[in-house]
Amino acid sequence: MVWKPDWVASKDILRRMGWSVVETTMMNSNPPEIEVPLGNFVKMNILFWNCRGALNVDFKRRIFEMVINHHPSIMVITETRVGGDRAARIIEDLPFDGSIVTETIGYAGSLWLLWKTDDVDVMLLSSFEQEIHATVKVHNSDPIWLISTIYARPRLSERRILWDSLKAVAQLHNLPWLMLGDFNEVLSSEDKFGGNQVSLNRTLQFKECSDVCNMLDLGFTGSKYTWTNRRPIFDLILERIDRYFANPSWRILFPEAAMTHLPRTCSNHCPILVELLGSTPPGPNKPFCFHTMWLLHPGFPNIVQEAWTEDGDLQGAILEFVSKAKHWNYNVFGNLFAKKKRVLARINGAQKSLASRPSEFLLTLEKQLIEEYFFNFTPGRGILGTEVKIECSYVWRP
């Protein structure tokens, strides 16, 4: 695939929009063409979530839980409602060491792009209230591609500004392009249940934007809708407004990429996971899981003492601790992780059924399962549930 842009016109637009990085990295010598590498397969996950407020008491714990379960190298969080120094302090406690943050509009909005620098290089191109644009290079992979993260404002007039901005961005490059976020708009009547009738004019404006950007909807597995107003059945509204789009170049780079709508729990938006190599079954040698709830059990110090002997070496003590801790956890707590997965699977099943056949029974079942999940797997309640994974070969520090 060959890109032959109009370099002179593009440079002027890029300077006015502040896209100096693209200009310096791609336009130094006015090349006649750029080859887009094909067939590069990398294992990397990207996670998107509209959290509805980063000051929620469960916010950090939910982020850590999703990172542990899904291993994202990049995470996009929208509607954090926190910006500036306060956002920086929260991000310092999260398991990412790279970040780009947009400011809030009053007490609403804000968009965070977070990443792990050991996995990817992310370079900011531009950011506005509703969008962040950056280049991404996955380590041990040659291609550089564009990522655009979106939080479309609820007001139609502001979304129109976003659509125009995205159409302008599409004219500035021909990179492989991934666009994801909360677009606050549906593409068709199939994307909505309940509420007012879908506005044909609004959906056509959204579709025109995606067409001009040459975007493909990447589809999904999981529940059909990504947002709910959490009302009783007679007032219930369900919509698919959170999406991943990509242009053909990006899709060719990552033909195995798979999107999953994860269960909704502490937000009325579901997290969305994209796995660039598709979902893969866990390997036989799973890493050892240290559960923080163990520290609150009165019998845990005995396990540590039994594993640690004065004459034993450090490696031997670690292996002995791992063996004893697994056996003790099974006897005291049972298989906690399996229990959590079963509850989440039931929540996911209820939400998928609710999307197909909405009923008061399914709404009640979903609510009960989410309450069970929070009660059993929240520190200080039920049987607790935050895990931190460590490799057995690492030094364990009690």
Rank of each mutant, 00 (worst) to 15 (best):
M1T: 11
V2Q: 05
K4V: 14
P5V: 03
R15C: 11
R16F: 09
M17Y: 06
M17I: 05
V22M: 15
V22F: 13
T24D: 15
M26Q: 13
N28S: 14
P32M: 11
G39A: 08
G39K: 06
N40G: 10
N40Q: 11
V42M: 10
V42T: 12
L47Y: 00
L47I: 06
W49K: 05
R52E: 06
I63S: 02
F64R: 10
F64Q: 09
E65L: 06
N69R: 15
P72Y: 03
G83K: 00
D85H: 10
R89C: 12
I91N: 00
E103H: 07
I105R: 01
G109N: 00
L111E: 03
W112M: 06
D119M: 13
V120H: 00
V122S: 02
M123S: 15
M123K: 13
L124P: 08
Q130P: 03
E131R: 11
T135F: 07
V138C: 12
S141W: 04
T149F: 05
T149Y: 02
I150A: 06
Y151C: 04
A152C: 08
S157L: 15
I161T: 13
L166F: 07
H173M: 05
N174G: 11
L175H: 06
G181I: 08
N184M: 11
L187M: 15
L187R: 15
S189G: 13
S189E: 14
V198Y: 01
N201W: 13
L204Q: 10
C209V: 02
D217Y: 03
D217H: 07
L218R: 00
T221H: 11
K224Y: 02
I233Q: 04
F234S: 15
D235T: 10
D235I: 07
I237S: 03
L238Q: 02
E239A: 07
R240T: 01
P248M: 06
I252G: 00
L253Q: 08
A258V: 04
M259A: 14
L262T: 01
P263H: 01
C270V: 05
V274S: 11
V274H: 00
P281H: 11
P281C: 12
F288M: 05
F288C: 06
W294A: 07
L295P: 12
F300W: 03
N302F: 12
V304A: 09
Q305F: 12
E306R: 13
D311R: 10
L319G: 08
V322G: 05
Y330T: 12
N331S: 15
L336S: 14
A338P: 02
A338W: 12
A338S: 14
K340Y: 11
V343Y: 02
A345W: 15
I347G: 02
K352P: 11
L354N: 05
R357A: 14
S359R: 00
E360D: 15
L363Y: 01
E366M: 08
E366I: 08
E366K: 03
E372I: 04
N376P: 03
T378S: 11
T378C: 06
G380H: 04
R381E: 12
G385D: 07
G385V: 02
I390S: 13
S393A: 13
P398I: 03
